[in-house]
Design a protein around this nucleic acid. Structure first.
Lengths: 191, 191, 191, 191
DNA sequence: GATGAATGAGTCTTCATTCAT
DNA sequence: GATGAATGAAGACTCATTCAT
């Protein structure tokens, strides 16, 4: 093959897209993105058929990254609290370390163009978390709440936490810990 | 004035804007909005100088509406829990009754064009809620958390709750109650 | 109404389109056309939804013009030969007087984007000619040929004639006459 | 030469070009053509310098094919009518057998990019036909018409005939014969 | 020579905003 | 004030052509 499609270039585009979208929203011109990625305007379209396609791919890409961050070092055998804490900490840490991606993700989530497949693909890597919730409910540790509701609460609380950490970077520890305590107290069963 | 600007028309535009933005996002054309409002394209610009201006005004408008909903019947003298419950219920109810406005608001919040004044104006009507938080902390009912963090948690948890109610409308009661319990258990001090 | 759509402008665009398409083919940019028409690029699209739409309208417009030219002064009561001659002469004269339109028409006819409606609308004004052919066949003046075949032959022969007249403008009379004689001899029954 | 340009490939491209251009017009992308030809996008440009060049070559190629079809079995010694009939029949037959090429040719003929050389090269192989016309005029069989006019008439009448045959394939014989009779009656001198 | 990724000028179309009526 | 036609800058996407592999 003559000059194979470069994974590097693809990643450069995705990364530039995350940054630009975080800064300017989804209305950002593709030319700005390709420019930031250091490729020609047309090149973007050899890697992604349309702008919508690019955004969908970016969504999946970020979701996968988050899942990877969460799952690395996941203490599968440990207690529910330990596992939840791991999930919480790694998600919050990821969000703090990757503010652009996090912001871009939020933009994409309120966007109307996400395909059903992307949404599905976005949730897929989080089965471990769902299993965690199931376990917790089975062990009667959690309150009797729909599993998805619990997952959503974990999500929003951690995102709120990230935002505060981003605003007050010196208080990482405090917010990460407090956030988790609010979550744990909120969803577990009072003995 | 020969023909005064009509408050009706202004409201029609704001209302149409909320709906259209909820449906199509902020990229929606002003012509679609003016059309939905039943006025001419140009008329929109006699009421709002620019599109950005319109969106900022819409933001304030919705925020004020929420504040009004929350403050009507606010039991100023009652216990912290009562007052918080009132706030929670009225916000959730408002969100369920006004899904368009709620959705539009979320779009606007991730948008990059909100002015500092709008943001300030948006928070202003919620002093009562802040006072509530202050009280609660003073009475050592709440955990020791920054007041704004608590406010943000109230916000996100209730929005998550609204979303679930919108998805499963038959379970209003359950979600509204459960959501509140999670919140209360999460932020209050364990004796 | 505030500034009604101007028929003049619409015509200016159609006329510019005919000229530009005649000169550069259907690949001509819409911006060149709007420019030639003396309007802004966007204005073209307030009169014609898309470029394809413009071309379809241009087709109908020219076809209607030809029909008008043919039908003005049409000697409905005279002999078949007289009527045919009238049709022939007026079409040839129109083509010689309007080379741009004629050339544009040829481009459009080989184009793949003509809608069925346009094609139908294009043939509609020529009923009188068909009636002429019917009459001629009924009177056993013409050879026994499918009416449409005869119509097509009239068309191509006259277009060929126009081209030669355009090349040798001094010989208008000769070509117009010779062309007609070829046609007449070709399609009439030898006694 | 290490690897000589393959005549096969060149022909594949020309043939694909004819087909694609017949189907989609001259606006068809070169990538579609190369794809249909089973070669890489870039390969097309090692055989034809530019797209315009390709089209010019295609024009000549088709014209040569037509000439070959006409001249094979040409009864050089026979009567004017015989010879004309041969020309007519073989052209019509070719057109019916090669509708793609025929359609592509029509597109190219209204195109503005044919070079003078191509036009000349396109007419060249038809000397025999011109000689036929000269003979006929000399023998006072034909009317006194410019030779090129006669040639053009032969051309358009036969093309019209082809179109009808393509539309009504069951009537090949009828149309081919009728067309020729119209031509013959039209251009020959009435005794 | 063959391949197909890379390029960027060029295209159609949209849309916020202006302004004649 | 209300209207909606006019404007032209900006944007997504295409495509002939080049060139690294």
């Amino acid at each position: 093959m003559a000059r194979p499609k470069s994974e590097d270039k693809r990643n450069a585009i995705l990364s530039a897209a995350a940054q630009i979208i975080a800064e300017r929203g989804l209305a950002a011109a593709t030319s700005v993105i390709s420019n930031a990625a250091g490729v020609a305007e047309g090149t973007l379209f050899t890697y992604f058929e349309t702008k919508d396609d690019l955004i969908n791919e970016l969504y999946r890409h970020i979701k996968r990254e988050i899942a990877d961050a969460m799952m690395s070092g996941f203490p599968r055998r440990k207690s529910v609290r330990h596992r939840l804490q791991h999930v919480w900490d790694s998600y919050v840490n990821w969000g703090v370390a990757n503010p652009m991606q996090q912001k871009a993700l939020k933009q994409i989530e309120v966007w109307g163009g996400l395909t059903a497949e992307s949404k599905a693909a976005g949730t897929a890597p989080f089965i471990e978390v769902q299993r965690l919730a199931d376990d917790a409910i089975a062990q009667r540790i959690l309150q009797k709440l729909p599993q998805q509701f619990v997952a959503a609460i974990i999500g929003t609380l951690s995102e709120t936490t990230m935002e505060f950490i981003r605003q007050y970077p010196s208080k990482v520890e405090m917010y990460r810990k407090s956030g988790f305590e609010v979550l744990w107290a909120g969803i577990t069963r009072k003995r």
